[in-house]
Design a protein around this nucleic acid. Structure first.
Length: 257
DNA sequence: ATGCCGAAGTTACTTCGA
């Protein structure tokens, strides 16, 4: 099982297909497709062995679930999902893949604490907390995976004092995230493949990746049945290397089900 | 080696991301 903000499905397709072959995940949650549903390369993914459920509207946002173990009961969006600029954005999709149910999430960035995008982010999290409650309490292994655009603690950013903006680390965002977890989901904390902290995002600018100026903002929030089945979790930082990389690395979770 | 931002709509520049 994996979650990965690929920052454009079209631009990342070759790397995605190569990664699917080497990492061989059964289920992958993708975010930031940056293409419309009709433009999702479902045939190429099918040739790689994966069924695809996707929701995208164009150049921004977009989420998908890839699965080679079944893909049933697909649902787009979340209950009570708030709109932004009068649009319901493609930021959530969920499906049952064999023995697990997963939700692929791309939370709003927030932009700035004074920007309308910030209360939108908090409202989205509030709706999410209610949306996941039933699955969180259920017996079926369930996880809400994706780019939450929040560092849960100060340890989840290279240096909180250097963070030039104010979003991603504020108390209201962390409280809203805690409310999602309070619905019955636990943060599946991954191990780092290098250095001591499992960052999942490094900005393209300022040599942030070579200097390991990263953030852990891609999370897997799991219900007890899912968390109990997790035997390992890590961030595949090798996928952040080289030309044509996404600015996020995949978060991979091994499950024994 | 991990290397100084990238994607996409539109067409020279803009918006967005975290």
């Amino acid at each position: 099982m994996a979650t990965w903000n690929i920052n454009s499905l079209k631009a990342r397709l070759e790397r995605l297909l190569a990664w699917l072959e080497t990492a061989a995940p059964d289920v992958v949650c993708l975010q930031e497709l940056k293409c419309a549903t009709a433009d999702v390369p479902t045939e190429a993914l099918a040739e790689a062995g994966y069924a695809t459920a996707a929701w995208g509207t164009g150049r921004w946002n977009g989420v998908a679930i890839l699965s080679r173990v079944g893909l049933e009961d697909v649902r787009t969006g979340i209950a009570g999902q708030p709109a932004f600029a009068e649009a319901i954005e493609p930021r959530a999709i969920s499906a049952t893949c064999g023995p697990v149910r997963v939700q692929s999430l791309y939370l709003p960035n927030g932009r700035d604490v004074d920007d309308p995008h910030f209360p939108y982010k908090l409202a989205f999290l509030e709706a999410l907390a209610a949306d996941v409650a039933a699955d969180a309490a259920g017996d079926l292994p369930f996880a809400a995976l994706g780019d939450y655009n929040i560092c849960p603690t100060d340890a989840d950013i290279w240096d909180v004092d250097e963070w030039p903006g104010t979003t991603h680390v504020t108390a209201p965002e962390r409280a809203a995230l805690a409310a999602v977890e309070a619905a019955g989901l636990a943060d599946v904390y991954p191990r780092a493949l290098k250095y001591d902290r499992p960052f999942t995002f490094w900005d393209y600018r300022n040599l942030d990746f070579p200097k390991n100026r990263g953030m852990r903002i891609d999370l897997a929030l799991a219900n007890p049945a899912f968390a109990k089945a997790a035997t390992d979790a890590y961030v595949d930082r090798n996928e952040r290397k080289g030309k044509g990389a996404s600015d996020h690395a995949p978060l991979v979770i091994d499950l024994d089900l």
